[in-house]
Write a protein that binds this DNA or RNA. Structure first.
Lengths: 199, 199
DNA sequence: TGATAAAAAGCACGTTCGTGCTATTTTTAG
DNA sequence: CTAAAAATAGCACGAACGTGCTTTTTATCA
């Protein structure tokens, strides 16, 4: 993420964001404090602050960083796969990989809960990114239907609603200590979900 | 919730908690500020504070209040229903009723996300209450299996994992603007889930 | 290499919050 | 009705936070 031909400012900015995403993921976007982040990257508060000009900008930058990383890990690697169904299956696997790579949590889950009542640019970005991701999944399912890999009467939106729910549920089950540490319940349910609509 | 034979202290305490739950539900347990709560119930900050002695105690009291209310609305009314399957269906309906009665959110969802990384008594209580609720659901499903209303090879835990996931998903879909405002996707998925394991 | 621009640090201000202490008002019980 | 106890208010504190201003250090490029 930190390229050699970047300017100094751009480099440190990226290094800050890398740490910031980790911190925001393991706590939350609001608990990500400029002071503690400055300590974590060994900078002064004001030195770090001048990169972002406001806390809201910092949060937006963290989300954009997460968004880029998410695409890199989850979405982009599957774009070449010709079969929509295989693409769907693989992208779900990558999705879990993203989750695992992020200290076993997902910043979008916490951010969407945290900002549901807090209007502003951060709220809008989270909602936007989430909507785009869901749209991607729906489009992939629809493509699988069009390619006749899935039954023609499959409801793509309903499918994705259930799929996304299972993702949320897996995180919640892990938290409450109800197994699924290795996403076995998620995988089982996903397989069942796909089997039901397979043609 | 406020009985006439209560002492003055107990009465105001309950009145505070009623407002506090509403505020904590629409924002979060951490954003529930003693100052703003005091304004909302028309008391002084210190007057209110002395009821709880610490913010953590206030949060615990709010959760206990929510817990009692949840039981009253969701759990208790179904205990008399003889058929486990009908009990399950009805309790899910009440569950949605609880959700609707709470300004279209659920404090347990936000609290579990908010305190997943924040050890302490609040974390433990949320995890405990959630685990108990899941156990109740699992027991009900198991009872339906034992009564032969559901197929004997039904995996009760997997069933509840999927059920709880759908609940989480419905809230998330509403938030992101992907329909399900009246829980139609939830109800559809729930019906499908039950149909699959019905004997 | 040296001039200029950019980055980073130092410092301080205004807010908000939880919490403690003391005084005052209200409830409780004989 | 009155004295004791409890509830509530008034006030102030220390800490943490976001942010602005000024100075110093570092990077950039002719």
């Amino acid at each position: 993420m930190v390229e050699i031909f970047m300017s100094k400012a751009k480099k440190t900015r990226q290094q800050i964001l890398e740490v910031a995403l980790k911190m925001a993921t393991s706590t939350s976007l609001n608990d990500l404090t400029i002071g503690s982040l400055a300590v974590a990257v060994d900078m002064s508060k004001s030195g770090l602050f001048s990169h972002f000009k406001s806390k809201e900008n910092l949060q937006l930058a963290v989300l954009q960083y997460a968004h880029d990383l998410f695409r890199e890990i989850v979405t982009i690697p599957v774009l070449e796969i010709p079969s929509p169904l295989e693409r769907l299956i693989q992208v779900c696997d990558n999705w879990l990989g993203w989750y695992e790579s992020q200290a076993k949590t997902c910043i979008y889950i916490s951010a969407s809960v945290e900002f549901d009542d807090q209007p502003g640019l951060v709220h809008d970005k989270v909602a936007d990114d989430l909507a785009k991701w869901l749209s991607f999944l729906i489009a992939t399912v629809q493509a699988a239907i069009d390619e006749k890999e899935l039954k023609p009467d499959t409801d793509a939106k309903q499918f994705v609603y259930e799929l996304y729910s299972l993702y949320l549920g897996s995180q919640s089950m892990i938290w409450v200590g109800f197994e699924d540490t290795s996403h076995n319940r998620f995988k089982l349910a996903l397989t069942s979900l796909i089997t039901r609509v397979r043609s």
